[in-house]
Design a protein around this nucleic acid. Structure first.
Lengths: 141, 141
DNA sequence: AAATAAGTCTATCTTTTTTATAGAGTTTAT
DNA sequence: ATAAACTCTATAAAAAAGATAGACTTATTT
């Protein structure tokens, strides 16, 4: 399960993407719109900024905005940044690998093999789907 | 990421499956073989027993054993039992659903749609792969 | 029947992670 | 100069994860 932090990040990014034309967006606006604690959201947006995903402007008329078009921001990147590994086991993670302490030989461990497949199946989606793909769908009248 | 509890459960189940012919297996044997705290493992095996996955025999010559053949124990079942939801978001979970508090309409939420796909891709593997599939592969000489 | 081996059960405790809050500081528009 | 807004560091509260303790029950063996 993704942490609240990552969940909030997605919702905030969606709001920023859907209001890209309006210049910098206030933290408080996102917090209210998406029902997130403003102070907690502050930390999250800052982390996204430090990772180069968001930009910000200080002072009056300031706020946060996307640094790249939504279609260039992969969901996997956001998850890894805020939650760490996407894989179900450390010994199967591409970006946060740790040796398994309970099995003798990963090369022969059947668990390792199956969990690699789960990771690949998830990554195939999360690496290719972007912020653009999770924007609110327009309902055709 | 799966919790240690679930990871330990998998390793314990693998050991039990690989020694099925030897009658009840001691907790202490599994703990030593798989490098797991014996008292922590005790709790885990008890939970697996209460869920009907394992059986046990008390007293001298006692221990734990599988209640079903390995090929009938799906990995998804173990994960759900010890870790809960397999989905990345509560609003997308089949077994542990919770309404999303940050979006206005799930039917229109693009995040919901993508995360459903991730869930389905993971479940396709985890529901179909069983304990039999994660046993140590025999190396052919 | 006694001794011993083994699982059962409940409670507690520690550590880590997650989630959230506080407040002083800095920047910028007006 | 003032007010609006992000920045930064620290801390705290809550929850979850991980681990341990010990008294209890059951079954085997002698």
């Amino acid at each position: 399960m993704l942490s609240k932090k990552t969940q909030y990040a997605f919702h905030a990014l969606i709001h920023l993407a859907e209001n890209q034309d309006k210049g910098p967006i206030l933290i408080s606006e996102i917090a209210q719109e998406k029902n997130i604690s403003i102070k907690f959201l502050e930390n999250i947006l800052l982390e996204l900024k430090n990772a180069g995903i968001l930009g910000s402007k200080k002072g009056k008329g300031g706020g946060y905005y996307l640094m790249k078009p939504p279609k260039e921001i992969a969901l996997a990147k956001i998850i890894r940044l805020l939650d760490g590994a996407i894989a179900l086991l450390p010994c199967v993670s591409l970006n946060y690998y740790e040796r398994c302490e309970n099995c003798k030989d990963e090369a022969v461990c059947g668990l390792h093999e199956v969990m690699s497949k789960v990771r690949d199946a998830s990554l195939k989606i999360l690496e290719n789907k972007t912020l653009k793909d999770i924007l609110t769908r327009q309902v055709t009248i």
